[in-house]
Design a binder for these strands. Structure first.
Lengths: 339, 339
DNA sequence: TTGTAGGCGTTATCAT
DNA sequence: ATGATAACGCCTACAA
C-alpha cells in the first residue's frame, strides 16, 4: 500500500509536507503543492485512517446496532436516514445486527469499542421498550425507535404513535363516523397501547360511549410467529346487524386483511365501510384500491435526527428533552368516506 | 484510553507478553496468563484495531455498498445475511448507501479504501444489470443481486428468477390450468424479462398456444414512481367472457391488486380464479386470504453466500462459476386450486 | 515555507 | 517463557 513516504519521495519533499497538502494546511508553496498533488494522483495515494486515528484518537465513525431486520419492511429507512446524515457530515458507519441475542450484543459493543467508534445508534425494528445491558462499555448512545425501560436514562428518539392515532381517529370523527370498530395490534408492541389509548381518549372526548365502539384483538404471541385473528375479527365486526361505518386497524397489514374480508362479503370501500391503517407500508397502502388512508411513521427522520442528536451529545451538549418524539403524518387517500 | 502498556505495568510483564495473551498465542505460562487476564479485566482493556491494522495491514473489515434502500421491503435480508456471515467469521462491516448517485459511490470507494477495507459487497435492491464505475479504486468486490453489464467481469451472485418462474408456471400447469393470464413487471427490472421468458417457454413446452395466454403490462416508468396498470389490467382479464382460470403476477404487490380486483368482482379465490405471485413479501403473501402461493427470493442467502464468495476471492481462490445463481423456492399456500 | 525528531498502540523479529 | 527493539503511517511540536 502506498504511503505518505512514497509520495514524498516522488515529489522530492519531506513526508510532513505531503501531510500538509493532504490536510489542506496553509503555508505550502504553490509549486510544491502542485508537485505533491501530482504525485498523489499518479500513485493513487489514499490516507490511512487507522494511522491517523492512532494519533488523533478520533475515528469519525458511528456504529449502528439493530436488533431484528425485516420484520417491518420500511424500517430500513431508519438506517438510510442515519447514513444520509453521516454522509453529509463526514462520518462513516459501522453496522451490526444482533438478531435479538444478548450475547451478540455484548460482542458487538466490544468490537465497536476496539474500533474506537465514537458513538452508537441503537435501533430497534419496532417501537418498543428495551432493558439496557449492564454497561461494560461506555460509548455515547442514542436509542432510536425505542426507549429505556429501567432507571437508565439514555437519550432517545421515538415516533409519536399517540398523536398519529389521535389524528386518524379525529379524521374519522370529522367525516361523521359514530360507530367505529378497532382491531388491536399485538400487545407486545409498544405502539399497540399508545395507538389504542389515543383512540379511546379521542372517541370519548367526542362523546362516543362504550357501545359505539367494537374492539377486537388482532394478533398476539411471539413477534414473527404471532397468532393472527384479524381476518376472522373483521368478518365478525362486518356481519353484525348494526355494523360500524369505519374500522381502525392497528397497522396496514391488518388493514389489508380487513379489505379482503370486506370485499369477500360484497361490501364496498369506502361506501359501505371506511378503513384506516397505520405505518404506511407502501407496498400495501398504495396497492390497495381504493388506496389506504393511514399514518406514516417517520422512519427516515428518526434515523436522520437520531444521528444528529448523537453528534450533539458528543459535542457535550445537554439534550433537552432527553426523549424526543417525531410526529406521524396523516396520509389521506381513498379509503375513508363521509357518513 | 487504556493501552497494552497499562496492562503490562499492572501485570508486571512486558507489553509483548500481554500481546501474546490477547492474541491467544502459545508459550505463555499459566500464572502469567492469569495475571494478565486479571489486569485486562480490571482495567477494561480493549485492543485498538487501528494500531493493529497499522502493523498487520489486515483490517478484517468488509464494506457494503447499497444503491437504494426500501424500495423492496425484504431486501434488507441481504444485508442481514452478510452480517451473519461476518459475525460468524470475525469480520466487521462498514455500510454505505449511495442513493443511486455516482458521485456518492465514488466517495464511498475512497472512504472505504482509506479504512483499508479488504473487500466490498456491492448490493442492489432489485435484481438488475449495473454499469460498473471506471475503477479508480481496486478493492476485491462481489456483486450481489446484480450482474456486470459491460466487459467487466466481476464475481457476482444472483437469484434465479427464471427457475422460480418456471416452477410457478409448472405448478399451475400441474393443477390443470390451460388458460392463464400474465401480468408483467416493469420492464426496467431484470426480473421482468427472466420471469416472463420462463413463463412463455414453460407454457409453450406444455403445448399451450398464443390464444391460451393473456399477457398484460402491469407497470412501467421510473422505479419508485411507476405507472400502475395492474388493477385495471386484472379487471379486464377477469371480465372477459372466457376468462383465464389462473393469473401469474410479476410480484406479490401485483398479486395483491389482482386479489382486490377479483374480490371486487365477486369472484372466489381459488375456486373462480387461481393467483400466484413472486417474491414472498410476507407482509402481503401471509396477510392475503387465502394466503398467496408465490416464489421466495433467496435474499438472505444471497447476502450470506455473497460474503462467503468474497472471502474465498480474498484467499485467492478461483471462483467458478464467476456468476453464481441461487434458486427461488416455490411456496405453496392456498391461492391455487385445481381445474 | 520546509524539514526533523518523536511518539501514538500494536506486532514482528530476534534475543535471552 | 519472556523481553527489547524496531517498525507500521501519520501527526504534533519544534527547529531551521
Amino acid at each position: 500500500m502506498v504511503s505518505i513516504k512514497d509520495v514524498a519521495r516522488l515529489a522530492g519533499v519531506s513526508d510532513k509536507t505531503v501531510s500538509r497538502v493532504v490536510n489542506k494546511e496553509p503555508n505550502v508553496h504553490a509549486d510544491t503543492l502542485q508537485r505533491v498533488e501530482a504525485a498523489i494522483a499518479s500513485l493513487g495515494y489514499v490516507p490511512n485512517m487507522a494511522a491517523r486515528l492512532i494519533r488523533s484518537n478520533r475515528s469519525r465513525t458511528f456504529g449502528i446496532i439493530t436488533d431484528f431486520i425485516s420484520t417491518t419492511p420500511y424500517s430500513g429507512d431508519i438506517v438510510r436516514g442515519i447514513q444520509d446524515w453521516a454522509n453529509a457530515n463526514g462520518r462513516t458507519v459501522f453496522l451490526a445486527n444482533t438478531n435479538g441475542s444478548h450475547e451478540r450484543e455484548r460482542e458487538t459493543w466490544r468490537t465497536f469499542q476496539s474500533h474506537r467508534i465514537e458513538g452508537v445508534l441503537f435501533v430497534t425494528m419496532y417501537h418498543r421498550v428495551i432493558d439496557p445491558e449492564p454497561d461494560d462499555v461506555q460509548i455515547p448512545t442514542v436509542l432510536v425507535n425505542c426507549r429505556p425501560g429501567s432507571k437508565k436514562s439514555n437519550v432517545s428518539i421515538e415516533p409519536d404513535d399517540f398523536q398519529g392515532s389521535r389524528d386518524l381517529t379525529r379524521h374519522l370523527l370529522g367525516r361523521g363516523h359514530r360507530r367505529i370498530g378497532y382491531i388491536r395490534l399485538n400487545p407486545r408492541l409498544l405502539g399497540a397501547e399508545l395507538r389504542y389509548e389515543a383512540f379511546r381518549e379521542t372517541v370519548r372526548d367526542a362523546g362516543l360511549c362504550e357501545r359505539d365502539i367494537d374492539v377486537r384483538l388482532g394478533m398476539d404471541g411471539e413477534i414473527g410467529e404471532e397468532n393472527n385473528y384479524v381476518f376472522a375479527a373483521a368478518r365478525e365486526i362486518l356481519t353484525q346487524p348494526k355494523r360500524p361505518t369505519a374500522i381502525v386497524c392497528g397497522n396496514d397489514e391488518m388493514a389489508l386483511q380487513v379489505y379482503i374480508a370486506a370485499l369477500g362479503l360484497g361490501l364496498n370501500i369506502p361506501n359501505d365501510v371506511s378503513i384506516v391503517g397505520f405505518d404506511d407500508f407502501r407496498t400495501v397502502s398504495h396497492a390497495l384500491k381504493p388506496e389506504l388512508t393511514t399514518a406514516a411513521l417517520p422512519y427516515y427522520d428518526l434515523g436522520y435526527c437520531g444521528a444528529e442528536r448523537l453528534e450533539r451529545l458528543l459535542e457535550g451538549e445537554d439534550l433537552e428533552p432527553k426523549h424526543a418524539m417525531l410526529p406521524c403524518r396523516l396520509i389521506e387517500r381513498g379509503s375513508v368516506g363521509a357518513v
